[in-house]
Amino acid sequence: MDVTEILLPGVGVRYEFPTSSGDRVGIVAKRDREFDLVRYGGSDPDAPETLLTLTREEADAVAEILGAPRIVERFADLTREIPGLVSGTLEVPAGSRFDGQPLGETRSRTLTGASIVAVVRGDRVLASPTPAEVLRSGDLLVVVGTTSGIDGVRKILQG
């Protein structure tokens, strides 16, 4: 899919893309993290119709409903604000001893200090999983911590 990105100096960024149903959709991501969803194609080709205006929290909720990529991006953003904090995505490898085990069994936070903040399974995202959440091989774990902490979690998952 082709997404055009247009810089709006002092305001934010506008993303624009056509949908297969024939609409041309624009998303304005403002610097204060508010979002406008617009649709082009009225009588004036340059003046879109505003469909929705979302606050930061509402946009986060929509993103969580729509899929994983944004979640990962949000943590990437968080880690940019706090020096030393990084995030990564780790896969539970096939044949891992934690396949079918609850998340708590990995004791990853106790051992490494890094937190598993989301589990991405297929097209579903489990944000803030509890220790009782059962892992499966192929799950993607979004981990936030220090670089060595994330490496530690990778070793645990492989071991």
């Binding site: 247009i6 810089l7 709006l8 100096p9 002092g10 305001v11 934010g12 506008r14 624009g26 304005v28 403002k30 406008d36 617009v38 082009y40 080709p45 340059d46 003046a47 879109p48 505003t50």
Partner: peptide, 19 residues
């Protein structure tokens, strides 16, 4: 922003002149 024109196609041109 008051006129809700941030999504309009001429807006980047206007902002570029300001920059």
């Amino acid at each position: 922003s008051d006129l809700k024109r941030t999504g309009f196609r001429e807006t980047p041109s206007i902002l570029s002149v300001l920059v």
